[in-house]
Design a protein around this nucleic acid. Structure first.
Lengths: 376, 376
DNA sequence: CAAATCATCCAAAGCGCTGTGAATAGCCCA
DNA sequence: TGGGCTATTCACAGCGCTTTGGATGATTTG
């Protein structure tokens, strides 16, 4: 395997177009094993074994084969190899799109980046299936009966997600990004400790003297949202504060949602003094709402958000803008991919990874207004 | 083909786990054509032709075959089919990641969503290869010599992008999302008219009396950034205003970048009165900078941004927050995918699609402060 | 020096599907 | 009644690779 990779890497340095054209000669028709072995005067068996690092090939012929492969730009046909070995060397991702709002999860790009990194290091391809979240049947039919992947990553699990028993029944290895509360059977997963993160965040706001804390959550059938809410409620309960339904919201995590909600709450009677928000994007909307009303974040209203540490949306370089519960979704992608590969290859490995989120202090939190009056 | 799809769709209704378990019996080992034909007492040929809609099969047997396929949850093995037909029924995307900043293009998720929609409608899979943008050789080796895709979508083209002659030389059908200025050979592409969009936007700001307009652009080796800058400069030139290098910036399009740049410019001598920004995310940073200085967007400083109409980042539901040059990247994804499929299937089709961006009026633009003094 | 061992290499049988080139059977017409 | 059709169906040869189960000499061993 390695024997093939190294030489070609040289040939494909971007910009070095001439070398590539030479290497691959007449365009579209790549060389086959048969042709290569014919050229070398060896059997297909020997050439195949030489390239795949089997021991029963002399070092001399192995070198000769490797050189020829490089020279002629030979690489095994994936389809043929997959058919022969029974392994597709590909991993499938089902990307659900909110059918109501046609929304793509913004977290997805970074997760993919992390996972893709691990895949390519291990010789796996990534197969994507983008489907409306109320019509995932097509995607599963494709992956499962067409057998074009060896494993699956499941995104955005819901409460007691029916896809989990389904995949379990089918025997295809899979790893869930997130968890599914109330799931009957065991399954492998990588998740952030959403409950503990939001409990700590709520605690922190309570410590600052905030009593009316708004929870701006994701859609309530999503598992992560359920856990975040549980964390929020646990923190309140610990101080004997009954959760107020008027302060708890669930919905798509858009900027506009955050903005509209904030405006109406702050303009209403008995306004809240703090917001706990499920995504950076929504948090930006909340801040816009705060500032449009002439209020100042941190001084008048506090704000904590969850931060997936998205590459294109960093929470400030030096001092974070927002106080946040932070956990890199890209890292989660890496970990989930590695776990899946380990499982597929029969390695003994942890099937459950719970990542703790950092609580990073930013410029969006401060003591509740009430306290300020006392001290100032 | 259709014959297979319909029945399975029923079996796979999410939640109907029992039906699935029944349909696929003993888990992982799917049925083969050989088994199915044996069961039916027919030859593999006949079964295959029946399922693939060939005319030389009697309607009676076709029905019988379809029913059996449904009952046993049969679907052809993709790998075997690909090997036999020579078509992989998959399309590859090479997703470059900025190697300097490890940044994933936020536009990518929505583009994929649009393209994926078209792919699944046409029976194609989507293969993703995530690679650092200075090391794309591995991705191309994989796609081209391993032959696991029938076509490629190229993202984020640069000035005279070397990947274009490369793919042309290799004879693999491909479509570029964007264009590559100075490219020698022809190629198929779907692009937004970046130049005209930014020219119109600049014109609009000039009409409002703004003279010092900052251009906050993407990385300058990216083709779209070059064209946007050209539009900006053309508008200035039309009014005999020499472009001021001190007002033109290029960089990664992050929120922090926009913020920092805005603060330093507005705090400096001879501050600008308007910003023309290449992405919503950066625009949010610009606005944060404006507001932190106690200024008001639109009244004190105007702002126009490009808006890719990302699903998770809509520019306000009713009245847009930002005045923007808007073009849906998701729609571009659909169009690029369709074009590629048309090309691969030898259909006669347009190889160049230039999408015009809307200039939508929002709440971020207003007359330059100078004019306000005159009128107020 | 014959027998056993080793190091190399190879022919051939699949993997599960498609597609070509018949074969078979039923039917029509002269 | 026999030749010519049409409508169905089938056997078989690949697609390009891996892998099993030998071959073939060369080398070692008792």
């Amino acid at each position: 395997m390695l024997n093939i990779k190294l030489p070609l890497t040289q040939a494909f340095v971007v910009g070095n177009v001439k070398a590539i054209q030479t290497a691959l000669k007449a365009g579209a028709d790549a060389m086959t094993l048969k042709e290569l072995s014919g050229l070398l005067g060896l059997s297909q068996t020997t050439v195949s074994r030489a390239l795949n690092g089997y021991p029963e090939v002399s070092e001399a012929t192995r070198k000769r084969v490797a050189a020829a492969a490089r020279e002629h730009g030979y690489a095994p046909n994936t389809r043929a190899r997959a058919l022969a070995t029974g392994r597709a060397m590909a991993i499938g991702h089902v990307i659900p799109i909110s059918s109501k709002h046609e929304m793509v999860n913004p977290v997805f790009g970074d997760f993919i980046a992390g996972a893709g990194e691990v895949y390519s290091r291990n010789g796996y391809d990534m197969l994507l299936s983008v489907v409306p979240d109320d019509d995932e049947d097509a995607a599963y039919r494709s992956f499962l009966t067409k057998r074009n992947v060896d494993g699956i990553i499941l995104h955005a699990p819901t409460l007691n997600d029916p896809r989990i028993p389904l995949l379990n029944a089918l025997g295809l290895p899979f790893v869930v990004h997130g968890r599914s509360s109330d799931a009957q059977a065991p399954y492998a997963w990588v998740d952030v400790n959403n409950k503990s993160a939001f409990q700590r965040a709520t605690d922190f706001l309570l410590d600052l003297g905030h009593a009316r804390i708004v929870l701006v959550n994701g859609l309530e059938h999503m598992d992560f949202a359920i856990r975040r809410r549980a964390g929020y409620e646990a923190a309140l309960k610990a101080r004997a504060i009954p959760p107020d339904p008027a302060l708890m919201f669930a919905g798509e995590m858009t900027e506009a949602q955050g903005h509209d909600l904030t405006r109406s709450l702050l303009a209403g009677p008995n306004p809240p003094t703090a917001f706990l928000v499920s995504s950076m994007i929504t948090a930006m909307g909340v801040r816009r709402g705060i500032e449009e009303l002439g209020l100042t974040m941190s001084r008048d209203v506090s704000l904590i958000t969850h931060d997936d540490d998205l590459s294109y949306f960093r929470n400030g370089a030096d001092i974070p803008v927002y106080t946040a519960t932070r956990s890199s979704v890209r890292d989660a992608g890496r970990k989930a991919a590695q776990m899946l590969i380990d499982i597929m290859q029969g390695r003994d490995t942890a099937h459950e990874i719970l990542l703790e989120a950092d609580l990073t202090l930013g410029q969006s939190t401060g003591p509740a207004a009430r306290l300020k009056v006392e001290t100032g």
